[in-house]
Design a protein around this nucleic acid. Structure first.
Lengths: 151, 151
DNA sequence: TTGATTGCAAAGAATTTGCACTGGG
DNA sequence: CCCAGTGCAAATTCTTTGCAATCAA
């Protein structure tokens, strides 16, 4: 009776094997926390799980609807998903190695509300992605991992 | 000898008919300033221009590389392009009618630099999109236009 | 049992690419 | 004239869907 089991029930989703495995995969991956559907699919294969890619997409969409995960559109076409731990934050993505850092800045949040207010909008959501190069990226573990993945 | 002609040359691009027409289309459309490849393609067709969709994509990508336009990824899959008028700004998008407002906030820009600095990144770029509902969207011209487009 | 959930393969949407043809300089 | 640029159709990439088989409650 894994923890994922209970979380799924609480979210109103039947605790099926694919859903449990996918949720555990997201919980297990503390770094990087941000995985694409493809990442998850491949990781499951490696773990010996036989779950179709279509199912991964379906389940992630259900999780997103249920508020269990948050979907992001970083540069480069595909979506990435991260476990929703409750607190909102924005992202800083390294263009060289793909490393993702999270941050939260009260001032930025406030100013965004102020802008929406000023322009006559009711703010519903926002996405802020900062792109850059992490200093000394060549020695960064993410960069090494990326190189290895390309080989 | 249109203005677009000179701008293309200045950008190091041969002044061909498709490029001129696409650039003029972007310059003409002051509102909305943000057009998808499909939008541009359709508008050109209506104007009686016989330019392929693939060419529109190719040309827009060239324009982006040349710095003539900026590409954005708003929610909903497809990219939109806007003429690069020099000054950076962020966007507020209405989820109901698609209206896009631009804004610039010095404080937000500063805080972003501070965040990048703090996390050890060299800032290269950023994208900030605020999503909301424009007040009284039902009477908003964009909303009416959207309804008409659906009919 | 029985409706919800999956897997697979096929469909879609957005964008890119290969290649023979055309047009700008 | 000659190569960059274009149109078209085919290919890619990421994601969604239809449907018969399977599973959780």
């Amino acid at each position: 009776m894994t923890a994922a089991n209970g979380e799924l029930k609480k979210a109103g989703l039947k605790a099926t094997l694919p859903r449990i495995k996918i949720l555990e995969m997201l919980e297990k991956h503390s770094t990087p926390r941000h995985l694409s559907a493809e990442d998850i699919y491949k990781n499951l294969l490696v773990s010996g799980e036989d779950i179709g890619l279509a199912t991964v997409y379906r389940v992630l969409t259900q999780f997103e609807t249920a508020g269990l995960v948050v979907r992001h559109h970083f540069e480069g076409g595909h979506s990435v998903f991260e476990l929703n731990e409750g607190e909102h934050h924005d992202h800083l993505v390294c263009l060289k190695c793909g490393k993702v850092e999270e941050f939260y800045d009260t001032t930025i949040e406030e100013r965004q509300h102020a802008m929406a207010e000023k322009l006559g909008f009711e703010l519903m959501d926002h996405s802020l992605y900062i792109y850059g190069n992490c200093k000394n990226f060549k020695n960064c573990e993410h960069f090494k991992k990326k190189l290895k993945a390309m080989a």
